[in-house]
Design a protein around this nucleic acid. Structure first.
Lengths: 133, 133
DNA sequence: CCGAATCCCCACCGATACTG
DNA sequence: CAGTATCGGTGGGGATTCGG
């Protein structure tokens, strides 16, 4: 296409640039940590090795599918290990790696900030909603 | 329904419990921070007051719609202020509040961890993919 | 007991066009 | 300049069922 609108050219440039933004380490990790149930899994695993069923019971909100998916992603990224013990019934244990442990302080920093400021956020939101409508 | 399967009862219990998980401050903040473009907006705003267009140019990946949506959510939570100056052409400035500034160290902690460990994660993922298939 | 596989919905996000 | 309105595609995530 030799002819295209300015809007299209602008859109193309934005799409190209988005690749960089999305691949930036900070955003990649925020995406990963922000995934559903990931933070809870890491926190639960910080107490040591856990069986699949234990995790499921510790995090009742997660469906089996989501729990498995999150665990697989974390395993893929080298944040935890998955150990299958072929006995009957089957037994699968999950445990944080060194890399996974190194992530704990970060998550705890977020948790601490959240606990300290959640009331401010709630009241700010309430005030904003009350004024706006 | 006086009669329902054990599976249904279990599901109902999980749904009820999920309410607690989702409302936990840590997860709420992770959801908020993990939202698209939020981290980038905060980082950009850490340099001081910015106009809407400046933010748009600084974050070329975000569409107007997403940028506006994210800004409105952050304003609602009291993390930034939105100031309209009625001149021609229109001018709207965004600026972090004290609460918003207090979030900066947390985001930087995540960013720092990501920068330091992104290579480990990439190599772990590459190794995992190479083995698995 | 630990998943894999399947179906399905709707929430999110992007593109485009229009307004004050 | 700074949005709002609207439409459409996509995929995340939940329920359910089947296998080892």
């Amino acid at each position: 296409m030799t002819t295209r609108t300015a809007a299209q050219a602008h859109t193309a440039a934005r799409i190209a640039h988005r690749e960089h933004c999305v691949r930036c380490p900070t955003n990649r990790m925020l995406d990963r940590i922000g995934e559903k149930w990931v933070a809870l899994i890491i926190k639960e695993l910080s107490g040591g090795l856990r069986r699949y069923g234990e995790l499921g019971r510790a995090i009742p909100g997660a469906s089996q599918k989501m729990l498995t998916q999150a665990l697989r992603n974390l395993e893929r990224d080298g944040l935890l290990t998955r150990t299958v013990t072929p006995e009957v019934p089957a037994r699968v244990d999950y445990e944080l790696t060194a890399l996974g442990h190194s992530l704990l302080p970060v998550i705890q920093a977020v948790a601490q900030w959240a606990d300290q400021h959640i009331e401010q956020i709630d009241s700010a939101r309430a005030a904003h909603d009350a004024r706006g409508r």
